[in-house]
Design a protein around this nucleic acid. Structure first.
Lengths: 144, 144
DNA sequence: ACCTGAATTTAGCACTGGCTAAACTTCTGT
DNA sequence: ACAGAAGTTTAGCCAGTGCTAAATTCAGGT
């Protein structure tokens, strides 16, 4: 393999790895925002305790993360009040829910059991490109 | 929904979230080990510089991580020598490569383009349960 | 044999995301 | 009305993963 070609391959590969890794904090943000949206829709409000319980982390961790999400313009909150989402936050939540739903329904259609489909879709959701998502949607449309 | 039922749901959900998150360090370990195995197979040896270049991180980061992987019993190395894998390391690498290959071939069979398939499989690989992997393999067997 | 350049390691820093314990608000039931 | 329960926040800790700069070791060519 010529040197130039190899360099390009390496660059592409490192980009792929770096991407999956730098996305970790974005993933976390998406998990929080999506969960908050669900809580608000299901219970009328989202409280820190609920988020902590659902995510399996300590209360203080949620507080710290919400501070970061507020700085990112996704969450809006006043002290000692339930958690709210900004417009941008709602948009991210909607997007995530759509993705999540397609992935989970896709796995079910593929023959994966309900439990595994739920768990795996949670993890996979954040690593699916638009192109792959479209392919999954096509599959769903064909197999219905 | 009865209280008991809801609690179980919450526990399941938090378990799913916690799992995807606590796996981050395991993911990283798998990426390193898989890459080292590839380098050894392709070039006869794996050097820190190559790993750093491929993963898109600094040299010192690789050194630190290799120390952790050595403590985990996955990597074996003497100072200033190329990187080796333990039996357990090779086993993990093999496992990862198998998974990776199935996921990537599955995405291709689904109609995803080569570039997206490569990048997405990199990210998805670590979040696919055995059950889902089997479903993908079944799909591949049917559509060949 | 030895010098130089490449590779590796060490040292020290920053940030993220986790935790516990303690302090502080808010809500609720009597 | 207010005491206690429930929820939130603050403070301070730790581990993991990244970085740069400087020191060290190794290997090749003269």
């Amino acid at each position: 393999m010529p040197a130039k070609r190899r360099v390009n391959t390496v660059k592409l590969q490192s980009a792929a790895f770096r991407r999956t890794r730098s996305d970790h904090s974005k993933e976390l943000a998406e998990d929080y925002v999506e969960l908050i949206a669900d809580l608000i829709d299901d219970h009328g409000q989202a409280r820190g305790t609920d988020v902590a319980l659902r995510l399996g982390v300590a209360n203080a961790t949620v507080v710290k993360m919400l501070k970061r999400l507020t700085e990112l313009g996704l969450v809006s909150q006043e002290p000692y009040r339930p958690i709210g989402l900004t417009g941008e936050g709602w948009q991210m939540a909607e997007n995530g829910r759509k993705k999540h739903q397609i992935v989970e329904r896709f796995l079910l259609a593929l023959g994966v059991g309900a439990d595994a489909a739920r768990i795996d879709s949670e993890g996979i959701e954040h690593h699916v490109s638009d192109e792959t998502l479209k392919a999954m949607a096509r599959f769903l449309a064909r197999n219905t």
